[in-house]
Design a protein around this nucleic acid. Sequence first.
DNA 1: TCTATTGATTAGAGCGCTCTAATCTTGTAG
DNA 2: CTACAAGATTAGAGCGCTCTAATCAATAGA
Lengths: 340, 340
Amino acid sequence: MVRPTMEDVAARAGVSRALVSLVMNNSPKVSAARRAAVLRAAEELGYQPHVMARSLASRTSTVLGVMVNDLRNAFFADIVEELDTAAQVAGFDLVLNTGGRSPTREWNALHNLLSFRPAGIILLSPVVPASAIQVAAKQCPVVLVSRTIRSSIVDTVNDDGEAGSALAVDHLVGLGHRRIAHLDGGGAAGAAQRRRGFESAMRQHGLEPVVVRSEHTDIGGENAVRELLATYERRELPTGLVAGNDFNAVGAISALEEAGLRVPEDVSVVGYDNTSLAALRHLSLTTVDQPRKDMARLAFEALIERVRGERTEPVRHLLHPSLVVRATTAEFSQTGGAAR
Amino acid sequence: MVRPTMEDVAARAGVSRALVSLVMNNSPKVSAARRAAVLRAAEELGYQPHVMARSLASRTSTVLGVMVNDLRNAFFADIVEELDTAAQVAGFDLVLNTGGRSPTREWNALHNLLSFRPAGIILLSPVVPASAIQVAAKQCPVVLVSRTIRSSIVDTVNDDGEAGSALAVDHLVGLGHRRIAHLDGGGAAGAAQRRRGFESAMRQHGLEPVVVRSEHTDIGGENAVRELLATYERRELPTGLVAGNDFNAVGAISALEEAGLRVPEDVSVVGYDNTSLAALRHLSLTTVDQPRKDMARLAFEALIERVRGERTEPVRHLLHPSLVVRATTAEFSQTGGAAR
DNA sequence: TCTATTGATTAGAGCGCTCTAATCTTGTAG
DNA sequence: CTACAAGATTAGAGCGCTCTAATCAATAGA
């Protein structure tokens, strides 16, 4: 288990430790002969530089701290995957933490990341108070994804939840729907923006926004629809639903079908997030897609720019979502739709 | 961005660096007065030990390397989340890599992990050759999840895919089904075992196993069912389907319903993996559940045992999956099922 | 009063590397 | 043959910490 050090390689190659260091960092000022000798010695010994020692000595870090509040959320898992891909290319390593949606746990996690003296930190939808983020940002560059903050030293990357909801509303209105309801995600991340976007888009169309309190789960969607069914007469029922997210949409569809209403013939439903769920042909959910890849890329780039000191002005990316039209939305028909 | 060091804390507290070190590692041999003074100085300066420096000096590591072939796969994301939770409790930090299902990329990722001189490494369903794993295992303890290997220094944690399929078969047979087909996952991880388990379970019941080549996707499930429909007369069609995974099952259900067959009245379908998909009330898929939490826990424990040197014998955990019965399976009825 | 003994504190070497400055080689011009 | 610049190599300090061994202080025993 005891691994060779630079000293060992130097001895075997018959050169100094400093020369080995130069070779390992492929410095141009090493003669071809020595370089070959060192490389061979390293190969024979199975030598590999010690990242931490290197980091200590060079006062630089190749570590990027990543804290994700919940990795089970496919959205964040996707982002992490993209971040890692970019990091590998750029020669960085990810130290990853989960915050479990708990401020205190996140606070600890953040501390752990900082104790690595990382080059930078990316926080995915953190729930810690802004002050904690500000403290971290004084130690190294910090980029926030799916969270905003008023700070001149923190960059943020968000999708425009308001625009996303507006996209859904516009789509439904374009299909002739007038009575449209939003299933609100409550306190979930991004839910507030989605609701705001829904409301203002509806008003823009001169329509009255109907908002039902719900949750970002399928059960939440079911309950919300039941409430709708209990509140409105059949003929007054909204014919278009803008769900808080895809799970919510699926639940809504279940409850609608249970009540004898067909989707999309009687009611059109739009989800949000474009999860793998939505793409299933079985569901073919019309939904709003957040450009995760772009978000990850921009977050990574913003961080690296700061790390390299290429920029000091804060940057706030607000990405435009897009609508993926599938089979749960259709033209509004007075009569209640044609058969399939 | 320049952070205080132990020296700074020592100076402010009026003690030596060594004493600060003792306090930071809460050694019992420090007087209460000094401890308080040091702690206060540290607090005031916002001092935090430098993990890498500590690691270098102490010749120990709190880093656990984790390589996951695909984080987008919810199964692995769940495992990572669990691993991190355990790691945080035990005082370890995760350095995470993704392998992108590519042997060469995985090989690089593995090297990156090793360059941290981690305390141990956990590989989630790696595709690198066994020899590479063996090489890594000579440098630090290695635990494999969802992958087997013949090695005396590597621990493994797997779910018993054969048993899982058998569970599905037993369930269907118990419901009276006799013509049962398996939608094979092809080269996907674990697919071979699931098929073997299916075949032997069927034979055990004195039944002829029917295997249709498919994939672990919904499209794959649809195509497999279409093939089945094209091959068999209606009355000869399998009445039970054991899908390769949940996505596959959903696709199969789509194709069945498209062909006018009802699930579960005409055909019962069992998935595999118990993804969030299966739990949706809309689908309510009967499926096989892999005990992810247990798998993560056992993997972590196995690694820590090795790290602590408490065990040198390899351990091979084979976990028993369980069947989650939901609404896509029902008793076989000669007539083609009762109404709902 | 002096010496053990125990407990608290510190000096200083060293972990594996980088980096600056110094030294050693060449090659070339005078 | 000397001088010197350019290139190649190395010595050695130092990154922030730990850890062993040494030192120091205070109490107890004789």
